[in-house]
Design a protein around this nucleic acid. Structure first.
Length: 502
RNA sequence: GUCCCCUUCGUCUAGAGGCCUAGGACACUGGGUUUUCAUCCCAGUAACAGGGGUUCGACUCCCCUAGGGGACGCCA
């Protein structure tokens, strides 16, 4: 039996370093076993998925050096690899489950189920579906469904006893069935949820090993139950530890640079990133820390994966990146620098900004230093201003970050269009409002035009610099963040998309 | 709130009952090499969460406690 693994990103946001992390382990394991690695797109959430996000995720994974044998863009024997193109398959399987009694139709409103919550919590129960439609006669239910009554299909979960699942890294895990929700498998809109789609696809695509994030561990009983109902063999599961931030929380986009685009823009070598990621929860048998993807594959051993959640440490990544840089030949080094960003294309984009301000050719680099490379480190006194207090600067940076969080169109005019109303809503002169942003982005109050600079840097680098500026100003405590979030939410900003604080 | 998972230096980790006086790496400190800096080399500080068992012997096995994390969605 040839080993087949998969990574299954959901195209609903920026390419995340966690996706590359899970992909890397799946790739390394499959290749170490002479197997195949599949990329599948899980776009069953119609509201959140987008083609643009899918494209960016594939491009970012490719940049990182992750290659897949089968996928939506390269095809393969189990196509299509995009779940939105496999809808009939899921419907057929849901029907099969219904007929076998492994699932049932549920006509409850979402409101009714939400209303259950408080009393369940009070009784010390896990909140969830109460089995209201469990007793419906299947034929009656089918008839109601046929007549067009809106409903969902739910997984029939035993109410008594315990479920026993096996994780490759942790052994046997027992969970009371009471803790397992009667998961919706087919939504009201006819789309499958993750649980159905993943189980069906893993089986149909011949996936033998599922390596995925820790956060899935508690839903393993559902996967097992679904496989059992179909009479399928469950792939072997190994739950990888979750990458943490310095506060030991799941790496969050809000506070840390987590986008693959950030690492690319910030000048990390993909082979160094992969090398670093491999060190998170895994180690070479000989404890060597500097290695290539090929070496990783050659030495990979699933049983050497550790289970504690590792903290992502930029300092060590920086060191590793330096090690990889120094191993490049001078020619390769130049080639990498050029490919990264000091090239004709990027200089061309700089020309309209720099040309009007330069008197000599040698002015180019000092004018654009912060766009071509990392800006200078900041201290709090860089934000001294005649009209703005430190607190004002903090507020501006925080609110700008919030407003930019959901900025879809990352180009100069659009950025201007979202920042200008923010300044107005904060009752600040644009000139004053812009000051801390200039310092955060350029490291100084006078620089090339701000929004052009932000556009040139890209979203990830821009956000990272704003965050780092906030840190230079003493950081924002959790309490202060809450207050600032509330302030931001109360601002009279017309037509903004309601981006949640987290 | 309920359930599940996790717990070795500040951080990433080695360690599968005696190789442990707990090893390596990042960071930090000191020293050396280098025209400066960086690199590089050498040295140092620093950990088995706590408590009970089991055993001749426990970082390693079991139990309890504590701490951390995760799940509990018609998101994935």
């Amino acid at each position: 039996m040839t080993v087949r693994t998969r990574v299954a990103p959901s195209p609903s946001g920026d390419p995340h370093v966690g996706t590359a992390y899970v992909a890397l382990f799946n790739l390394a394991f499959a290749k170490s076993q002479g197997g195949r690695f599949v990329l599948r797109i899980e776009d069953t959430d119609r509201a959140r998925s987008s083609e643009a996000s899918e494209e960016r995720i594939l491009a970012a994974l490719r940049w990182a050096g992750i290659e897949w044998d089968e996928g939506p863009d390269v095809g393969g024997p189990h196509a299509p690899y995009r779940q939105s193109e496999r809808l009939p398959i899921y419907r057929r399987h849901a029907q099969e489950l219904l007929e076998a009694g492994g699932a049932f139709r549920c006509f409850c409103s979402e409101e009714r189920i939400d209303a259950l919550r408080p009393s369940q919590l009070e009784r010390g129960q896990m909140p969830g579906y109460d089995g209201h439609c469990l007793g419906l006669d299947p034929d009656d239910a089918a008839e109601r469904a046929a007549s067009g009554e809106p409903h969902v299909v739910r997984l029939r979960v035993p109410v008594e006893g315990a479920c026993s699942v096996q994780d490759r890294l942790r052994g046997v895990i027992e969970t009371p069935w009471r803790q397992v929700n009667m998961q919706v498998l087919l939504k009201r809109d006819g789309f499958p949820t993750y649980h159905l789609a993943a189980a069906v696809d893993d089986h149909l695509m011949g996936i033998t090993h599922v390596l995925r994030g820790d956060e899935w561990l508690s839903s393993m009983p559902k996967a097992q139950l679904i496989h059992e109902c179909f009479g399928w063999e469950l792939p072997e599961h190994a739950h990888l530890p979750l990458l943490r931030d310095a506060q030991r929380r799941k790496l969050s986009k809000r506070r840390n640079p987590t986008g693959l685009d950030y690492f690319r823009a910030a000048g990390y070598l993909p082979e160094a990133l992969l090398n670093y990621l491999a060190l998170m929860g895994w180690s070479m048998p000989d404890e060597r820390e500097l290695f290539s993807l090929e070496e990783l594959i050659a030495a990979f051993d699933l049983d050497r994966v550790s289970t504690g959640g590792p903290v992502f440490d930029m300092e060590k990544l920086n060191w590793l990146n330096g090690q990889h840089m120094r191993r490049l030949s001078p020619a390769a080094f130049v080639e990498r620098v050029e490919r990264w960003g000091i090239n004709r294309e990027r200089l061309g984009r700089l020309a309209p900004l720099v040309q009007p301000r330069a008197e000599r050719l040698s002015d180019v680099v000092p004018l654009a230093d912060y766009l071509l490379g990392e800006r200078a480190a900041l201290k709090a006194d860089a934000f001294a201003h005649k009209a703005l207090s430190t607190e004002d600067c903090r507020r501006i940076l925080h609110h700008a970050l919030r407003a930019l969080q959901s900025e879809a169109q990352w180009e100069s005019a659009a950025l201007m269009a979202s920042m200008k109303p923010l300044a107005a809503a904060m009752e600040l002169k644009l000139r004053d409002f812009l000051f801390p942003l200039f310092v955060a982005i350029a490291g100084r109050a006078a620089a090339l035009p701000l929004f052009d600079s932000m556009a040139f840097l890209g979203a990830d680098l821009t956000r990272a610099r704003l965050r780092s500026a906030l840190d230079a100003l003493g950081g924002v405590s959790n309490k202060a963040a809450k207050r600032l979030d509330a302030e931001f939410d109360a601002l009279p900003l017309a037509g903004r998309s309601a981006a949640p604080a987290s």
